[in-house]
Computed example of a mutant assay.
Amino acid sequence: MSKVALVTGGTRGIGAAIARGLKEAGYTVAASFVGNTAAAEEFREETGIPVFRWDVSSSEECRRGVDEVTQALGPIEVLVNNAGITRDRAFRKMSDEDWHVVMNTNLHSAFYMTRTVIEGMRERQYGRIINISSINGQRGRYGQVNYSTAKAALYGLTKALAMEYARRGITVNAIAPGHIDTEIVRSSSPELVASLLAEIPVGRLGTPEDIARCVCFLASEQADFITGSTITANGGTYLI
């Protein structure tokens, strides 16, 4: 029986590519979403991947959502914490709401989701937790104090959890995408896209599939000696 993988924010953009990639790799995949029902239904019809709606920024909703997935598909053995949002603006104009909504969705959700699945992983002595962070959590970016802070915090979460659960057969890793060719980027001005390309030594934007391949590797048996690590997938934009 194939392992069950859950991808939060898994019906659009990078999340959708991750969900597709895991399905192609032989996993039974579930994708969560919260806002765009039409896009989620289109994704489900196109891929055959079941979709589940809940708000990952709510601890209670995460418990409910995981229960639904588990009842429908079985225990979750791979969790990809991908859900995220932006509320970009200069720090002096950033409101309390701008700060809290980004922290709740981009950081607190990873805590809620992981806490909900990890005891089952511990009992089964097996699990893969993969946190999707960002290049901007490594280097920062103008107008993204909230986003960069949340994404940077995921690295600490990843390392500490990896240390706690390494002897329980659970690996915890992160991925730091660079500039990726998503709907948001494609809808940007040509000048902005050109400026992003100018930052990338390999000369192209990343694709959602580039990130999906990283996830599939970290979820696989071949990666069972890798934990507490970050794969930096940015085309050479930022080297650490």
Results as ranks from 00 to 15, higher is better:
203 G>C: 01
223 A>G: 00
197 L>K: 00
229 S>H: 02
182 T>S: 11
157 L>C: 01
169 G>I: 14
170 I>C: 11
220 S>E: 11
148 S>L: 06
226 I>V: 08
126 Y>R: 13
215 V>R: 01
158 T>A: 11
185 V>L: 09
140 G>S: 12
173 N>H: 12
203 G>S: 01
148 S>N: 03
224 D>W: 07
187 S>Y: 00
209 E>K: 07
202 V>G: 03
189 S>C: 09
154 L>Y: 01
198 A>Y: 02
194 A>V: 07
176 A>M: 13
200 I>V: 03
190 P>K: 01
161 L>W: 14
154 L>T: 10
155 Y>W: 05
136 N>W: 14
173 N>Q: 13
157 L>K: 03
180 I>G: 04
141 R>Y: 03
208 P>M: 00
158 T>S: 13
139 R>T: 11
149 T>F: 02
162 A>T: 10
181 D>P: 05
225 F>M: 06
210 D>P: 02
228 G>F: 07
181 D>N: 08
220 S>C: 05
203 G>N: 08
224 D>I: 10
139 R>N: 09
214 C>H: 05
198 A>P: 06
139 R>K: 15
205 L>E: 05
162 A>H: 13
130 I>P: 15
161 L>V: 14
130 I>D: 14
203 G>I: 02
208 P>A: 02
196 L>R: 00
127 G>F: 09
